[in-house]
């Protein structure tokens, strides 16, 4: 296993990473949430972040998207430092989409209006001219009949898929997903994870914080175990799940496995 993992890392080093974090730290008051995170994601790579609640996964994603300013370190997108204080965040955020756990959709707008709001405001496009393209995306993700519905007329899984489409509508280069299935009823989880698999096939660069261990094991290119604000261990999913080297990774996986955290993805 190990040589393979090294080989992949070496390959990543030859090619410039799409997204690169170097020594990122973030403190809320006295609480150090991120304590020097180093993470690379190559173009088209799906990186899954696992780890206990409160380990810093969400904060890390919010820092990449500039929703939270970082204290120290650098975030590079295509080699460009986007963490420079004072940089206008708007244009950068358009290149990095993010989907949250819940409260994603704007409840007073139809699904289509949700998806087209940002392109309308930023690129000055009209809802009418965007409708055919949006319809194609909706259909592709199984939502062809739901363009004109309001969020409260959709199931949780459908809402999350609309939220993903909305983020994709800005044609981002990187997508971040923050526990997007944690608030869903179990039977709705699969349909959302399927969308992520489709995106992977499209070659989207993704960083996904998740509790779905089976999904991380089966679908991820690389799994990072985050604990107490640092990446304690990372590697290909087979290595992490079959033979974790770090003691904390081992005990975390034991805990979630006992809870039934790893089950076959539907």
């Amino acid at each position: 296993m190990m040589p393979e993992a090294r080989g992949k890392e070496a390959e990543g080093a030859r090619e410039k990473p799409k997204l690169s974090l170097v020594g990122v730290t973030k403190t809320f008051g006295q609480q150090a949430v991120l304590r020097g995170v180093n993470l690379d994601a190559s173009k088209g790579e799906m990186v899954c972040l696992i780890g206990p609640s409160g380990s810093g996964k969400s904060t890390l994603l919010r820092c990449i998207n500039l929703l939270e300013p970082i204290d120290e370190g650098f975030v590079y997108l295509d080699g460009e430092d986007i963490s420079e204080p004072g940089l206008k965040p708007g244009p950068i955020r358009r290149r990095i989409g993010i989907v949250f756990q819940s409260f994603n959709l704007f409840p007073h707008m139809t699904a289509l209006a949700n998806v087209t709001l940002a392109p309308r405001r930023i690129h000055g496009r009209s809802e009418r001219e965007m409708r055919p393209a949006a319809e194609a995306l909706f259909t592709r993700f199984g939502l062809g009949d739901h363009l004109d519905k309001y969020p409260d007329q959709l199931s949780g899984g459908q809402q999350q898929r609309v939220a993903i489409i909305r983020a994709l509508a800005m044609q981002p280069e990187v997508m971040l997903f923050d526990e997007i299935t944690s608030a869903l009823d179990p039977e709705l989880v699969g349909e959302v994870l399927d969308v992520l698999r489709q995106l992977r096939e499209d070659g989207m660069t993704m960083v996904i914080a998740t509790h779905e261990m089976a999904f991380a094991r089966d679908a991820a290119d690389r799994v990072c175990f985050i604990d107490e604000g640092v990446i304690a261990e990372q590697g290909p999913p087979e290595a992490i799940f079959a033979a974790p080297k770090n003691r904390r990774t081992q005990s975390f996986l034991r805990r979630v496995l006992r809870r039934g955290g790893v089950h076959e993805a539907p």
Partner: peptide
């Protein structure tokens, strides 16, 4: 909910657009 604002901001909308199109109508 603050997530509504975060969702708008993360799409690259300006603060004033977020207020006008997302927060105020609700």
């Amino acid at each position: 909910h603050p997530s509504q604002r975060a969702a708008g901001i993360s799409l690259g909308l300006s603060e004033s657009d977020v207020m006008r199109y997302i927060v105020l109508p609700q």
